[in-house]
């Protein structure tokens, strides 16, 4: 009996620390992990390829503490003008090719062309069709469809917050932008990222080191609210 108690005590003792470690590991938060977003917004295309400035969408950064997320209508308005038009064009071309295919078939029925000629022409047209279809990327279409749904339902998109600060921290984008700090200083090269993720630790030491190096105020009340 006594032996059992001793074993139980030892197991319990080590088990406690194991459980603690397991709990720690389970709740471990790796800030660099990419978060899944409701819409796979690609910064690589927008900020990278197209070169849209950050402040075009996060437009309150220079005037408010929050950089703010763009309204759904903002996404929709751009895409209506560019993407949807583009898609319409492609669809129009697809329709044109389909019509041409039909014409080839009718030409053959009328005896204007031979079977070999018809097959040759149809293969060419099918290749053209496949190329056009490829231009209509399914992921992109899905995303656009989602945006359209949000607009139709008058529903905001619930983005998952990437850069979160504890509630006892006061942070404002405004003074940082006023000091001409680049967005990339804290947010990394978002234009290379695709879906945005956090690259800087956003810890107090990290903040203070930058504040000190730039001779910015580093009294506790500057950030602790």
């Amino acid at each position: 009996m006594q032996k059992l108690i001793i074993i139980a005590a030892i197991v319990g003792f080590f088990g406690f620390f194991l459980a603690l470690g397991a709990g720690y590991a389970y709740t471990w938060y790796d800030y660099e992990t990419m978060r899944e977003q409701p819409i796979a917004f690609d910064h690589k295309i927008h900020a990278g390829q197209l070169g849209v400035p950050c402040s075009d969408c996060h437009n309150a950064a220079a005037i408010s503490r929050q950089a703010t997320m763009p309204a759904v209508q903002k996404c929709a308005s751009c895409h209506k003008a560019i993407q949807v038009r583009l898609e319409e064009l492609i669809e129009f071309e697809i329709e044109k090719i389909e019509a041409e295919k039909e014409k080839i078939a009718s030409d053959f029925a009328d005896g204007k062309i031979t079977a070999a000629e018809r097959d040759n022409k149809l293969v060419k047209k099918d290749r053209e069709l496949a190329r056009k279809d490829r231009e209509l990327d399914p992921v992109r279409r899905k995303n656009l469809q989602k945006i359209k749904e949000h607009v139709d339902k008058q529903e905001p998109i619930a983005w998952v917050r990437v850069h979160a600060l504890p509630s006892h921290v006061y942070f404002s984008h405004k003074p940082h932008i006023k000091q001409n700090i680049e967005c990339t200083t804290c947010h990394g090269r978002v234009e290379w990222m695709g879906i945005a993720r956090q690259v800087a630790p956003l810890t107090m030491g990290w903040c203070v080191s930058c504040h000190k190096s730039r001779n910015a105020p580093h009294d506790c009340t500057t950030c602790h609210q």
Partner: peptide
């Protein structure tokens, strides 16, 4: 601090 909040902009 685990991020729990969501940023949901107005329409």
């Amino acid at each position: 601090n685990k991020p729990k909040k969501i940023v949901s902009p107005a329409l």
